[in-house]
Simulated scan of single mutants.
Amino acid sequence: MKETFSPSVRALRGVSGAPVLPVTPPDPGALAAKVRTLAPSMTRSMQRVAEAVAGDPAGCAHLTVTALAVRTGTSEATVVRTARLLGYPGYRDLRLALAALAAQQATGAPPAMTADIAVDDPLGDVVTKLAMEEQQTLADTAAQLDMAQLEAAVAALAAARRTDIYGIAASALVGQDLAQKLLRIGLIAHAHADPHLAVTNAVQLRPGDVALAITHSGTTHDVIEPLRAAFDRGATTIAITGRPDGAVTQYADLVLTTSTSRESELRPAAMSSRTSQLLVVDCLFIGVAQRTYEDAAPALSASYEALAHRHSPRSGRA
């Protein structure tokens, strides 16, 4: 049975047990996205630290760990824990990122704008606000994606004997999208939205297979259960989640973190999480297609040809 290991150890394992690059600290420009993504899972004191560094990177970059603790009414230990949760090895690394972010902001680039949708907003304003939020969500997700983890996930999918994908509700739609993309380039992939079928299929997996779970919250039991079953049987496991500290990551060899905009009454998290999940899925698919191009190109061409008649006018038919 495959041993359970911590996120830090998982990040050092390759898809076949060999070491890979450790998790890369986030790009300075992704700091605000990281704070938005992780804030719900932070303690209130950690939230104060995170909000301070995201809101005033230039000011905080000059503060010692003690000074930042005083400014936020927390402790030095809380500051260090917050830095590590945000993806930095220590507070010194966070300060360097803050200085870099402050330098970027000093160039005069306008800050990203966000706006909640009100119940009485004109439809034109709704379109503008949604477009703005979607763009920000995509930019945040792209900025905070760990390239080492993404590369390893692509390699695992490209080499997999079989890929099982688990997701519920909106995440199930994303899983179906990835499955049909992989099928069209000649790979064996199945998306399971039924939790019972997901588990019964997961227990059939073995080393050389891939199981991929999609859950924004990171706590969806119906997604975690089949991923755990696949993990225990030696399959390479991948999680696409908005919560890198969520329960699903306990059984994931590789974790791909998504970002979402703020949740509001008329725009639940499922909307923006789907957008960011689809970006990650597209990155995985393109990466796999590149790696398997000699086989993928003919398979994709054959699938186009097989469906071509369904897109042509049916003249002369009853």
Rank of each mutant, 00 (worst) to 15 (best):
Q149V: 03
S45H: 03
V127M: 04
S276D: 03
G73S: 14
A193V: 06
P313V: 06
L63D: 10
H190P: 00
A179Q: 06
E76Q: 08
A102Q: 04
E134D: 11
V9Y: 05
A172R: 06
G218M: 04
R314Q: 04
E133R: 14
D164E: 14
G108F: 11
V126N: 03
A61G: 05
D245R: 09
A100R: 07
T200Q: 07
T241A: 07
L212C: 00
M132S: 11
V203P: 03
D27S: 08
R262A: 15
A179P: 01
E263V: 14
A172S: 14
R267Q: 11
T237Y: 03
A102E: 05
H62M: 12
S303D: 12
A191E: 05
A67Q: 15
A139F: 06
V203N: 02
A11K: 01
A131L: 10
P7I: 11
L85P: 02
S273Y: 05
I168E: 02
L38I: 08
R13W: 08
S264T: 15
L178F: 04
R44D: 14
I188D: 14
P195F: 02
G208P: 03
A33G: 09
A318W: 15
A172Q: 05
K181Q: 07
F5K: 02
S276M: 02
L256K: 09
R233K: 13
T220R: 05
S276C: 03
T215Q: 02
L178M: 15
V126W: 11
P226W: 00
G124T: 15
D121K: 01
